[in-house]
């Protein structure tokens, strides 16, 4: 895809990690898809917010903890992670329960900037309305 217009891709994540394979599959598709140089963002709504909680420890369930990989997304030029505020609130969570996912801004002397954007349901609806392609997991 070396030429052509850049499209706005959004990956919508609505499942908790580990109980099903959706979260990991989504992350893998995101990383593979990053090679196509599109305008990519991720949304975490509903139970999807559990994918990026801090302090995940999977040693006792015998599965790989893939939460550190979300911190690599910035290297793949994926710097917009939308989290719906209502989803956090409904689940007794706040932004403080999420990982501090950051990216380094190449155009600003590699300054670290937050990737997570907590938005309201109404704001997220606007962001979704502006997408070209939506992929749901």
């Amino acid at each position: 895809m070396s030429e052509g217009t850049i499209k706005k891709f959004m990956y919508v994540n609505r499942k908790p990690p580990y109980g099903t394979v959706y979260a990991l599959e989504s992350l893998e598709v995101v990383l593979i898809g990053a090679a196509f140089d599109q305008d990519v963002s991720l949304a975490f709504i509903g139970d999807g917010v559990y994918q990026i909680t801090k302090g995940q420890s999977t040693s006792d369930i015998g599965m790989k903890n893939f939460s550190p990989t979300y911190n690599a997304l910035g290297d793949y030029d994926i710097t917009k992670l939308y989290v719906e505020q209502e989803s956090l609130t409904e689940r007794g969570l706040s932004v403080d329960d999420l990982m501090d996912i950051v990216y380094e801004d190449e155009d600003d002397d590699w300054a670290e900037k937050p990737s997570i954007r907590v938005v309201s349901r109404a704001e997220l609806a606007d962001v979704i309305a502006g997408q070209d392609i939506l992929l749901n997991f």
Partner: peptide
């Protein structure tokens, strides 16, 4: 977890039954 939209249902259930949660699955989800 405390503070969710279903907390009151659990509290009500615990008046007559016991509720347990599996620690390793809790830890996995942070």
């Amino acid at each position: 977890i405390k503070g969710t939209t279903i907390e009151s249902k659990l509290t009500e259930t615990m008046q007559s039954s016991k509720i347990y949660v599996l620690g390793p699955d809790l830890a996995a989800r942070g």
